Computed example of a mutant assay.
Amino acid sequence: MNIKDYIELIGSFTKADFGFQGGGGSLYSKLQQEGNVIFPEEFQEYIVSYAPAHSQFFECVGNPLDLYSAGRLSWLMNGYNYNPVENKPISHWDKTWFLFADEGADPIIVDLAEGGRHSTVYRAMHGAGEWDFRPIADSIGQFLLCASALHHALTGIVDDDVIIDDESGFNLNDRSASWLFPFFRQYADKYYKDWLVSFDNS
């Protein structure tokens, strides 16, 4: 599947408008020139045609996932590769890591050094002393689909008691689970547990 297929699939299960419209070719040219790097094809397509017009927040268990707007995409990543208080770069951030989202300050990146058509998406824990990035999706499209599906299960299927925390464990309610878990088995593939680890009934 390509990113367009994933966006169309998102539209098939949610009426939420995530503003996937892109920042245009001028934004991509600006980022490419500033970084002096060729972006992987899929991430280039994401920047030009699908990065949201406004930052989008996807509900998760705990902190929401903040998908940056096209206008926030930058090589200056405050708190990650740059300290704005001391006005100096932060070491231990690889120059090929490009931040495009975070979850409670946990960075979500693509590594521009990787070749290929698709861009593996990685996440790391913030404040752990060093960055230990682990993959959570094989492509931008898969990442957007998983984030959108989890958001839909938590906000768009039942009105209350989405999560049940009792003697039987920390569980997603039956209606949401009956939709989300099979959906993730089909589309999240090997990242099923990475997205659903919080739920005892997954």
Results as ranks from 00 to 15, higher is better:
residue 137 A to Y: 04
residue 132 D to G: 06
residue 142 Q to F: 04
residue 96 T to A: 08
residue 96 T to D: 14
residue 146 C to D: 03
residue 97 W to E: 00
residue 170 F to V: 07
residue 101 A to L: 10
residue 135 P to M: 02
residue 83 N to S: 11
residue 96 T to E: 11
residue 138 D to Q: 11
residue 121 V to T: 05
residue 121 V to D: 02
residue 141 G to S: 05
residue 136 I to Q: 09
residue 135 P to C: 05
residue 126 H to M: 11
residue 144 L to D: 02
residue 106 D to Y: 02
residue 107 P to S: 10
residue 123 R to M: 15
residue 135 P to W: 01
residue 95 K to T: 15
residue 110 V to E: 01
residue 128 A to Q: 14
residue 82 Y to E: 00
residue 159 D to I: 06
residue 113 A to Q: 12
residue 105 A to W: 08
residue 143 F to V: 00
residue 91 S to Q: 15
residue 97 W to H: 13
residue 96 T to H: 14
residue 88 K to Y: 01
residue 135 P to T: 09
residue 140 I to G: 02
residue 122 Y to M: 07
residue 108 I to L: 07
residue 93 W to D: 01
residue 97 W to Y: 15
residue 129 G to Q: 04
residue 112 L to N: 02
residue 118 H to K: 15
residue 122 Y to I: 02
residue 163 I to N: 05
residue 80 Y to E: 00
residue 95 K to F: 08
residue 90 I to V: 14
residue 170 F to L: 06
residue 126 H to N: 13
residue 107 P to G: 10
residue 141 G to D: 00
residue 142 Q to A: 14
residue 140 I to T: 08
residue 80 Y to K: 01
residue 151 H to G: 09
residue 95 K to A: 15
residue 149 A to T: 03
residue 94 D to R: 15
residue 126 H to K: 14
residue 133 F to P: 12
residue 160 D to M: 11
residue 140 I to Y: 04
residue 90 I to P: 01
residue 79 G to C: 11
residue 104 G to H: 09
residue 90 I to R: 14
residue 93 W to Y: 07
residue 109 I to E: 03
residue 111 D to V: 02
residue 99 L to Q: 07
residue 134 R to G: 13
residue 103 E to Q: 15
residue 140 I to V: 15
residue 168 S to L: 12
residue 83 N to R: 14
residue 152 H to M: 04
residue 125 M to S: 13
residue 147 A to N: 04
residue 108 I to A: 06
residue 166 D to T: 10
residue 105 A to K: 14
residue 164 I to D: 03
residue 157 I to F: 10
residue 125 M to A: 14
residue 130 E to G: 04
residue 157 I to E: 07
residue 108 I to R: 13
residue 107 P to D: 03
residue 107 P to R: 07
residue 123 R to Y: 00
residue 117 R to N: 12
residue 129 G to E: 04
residue 153 A to R: 11
residue 138 D to R: 15
residue 163 I to D: 02
residue 80 Y to G: 03
residue 143 F to N: 01
residue 109 I to V: 13
residue 142 Q to T: 07
residue 79 G to M: 08
residue 160 D to T: 13
residue 96 T to G: 06
residue 166 D to R: 01
residue 124 A to T: 06
residue 110 V to P: 08
residue 136 I to C: 13
residue 166 D to M: 05
residue 111 D to R: 10
residue 133 F to R: 06
residue 134 R to V: 10
residue 155 T to Q: 12
residue 146 C to W: 01
residue 94 D to Y: 13
residue 102 D to N: 15
residue 154 L to T: 04
residue 133 F to Y: 11
residue 100 F to K: 02
residue 90 I to T: 06
residue 107 P to Y: 09
residue 158 V to M: 05
residue 138 D to V: 08
residue 131 W to Q: 09
residue 158 V to K: 04
residue 171 N to H: 07
residue 112 L to S: 05
residue 107 P to L: 06
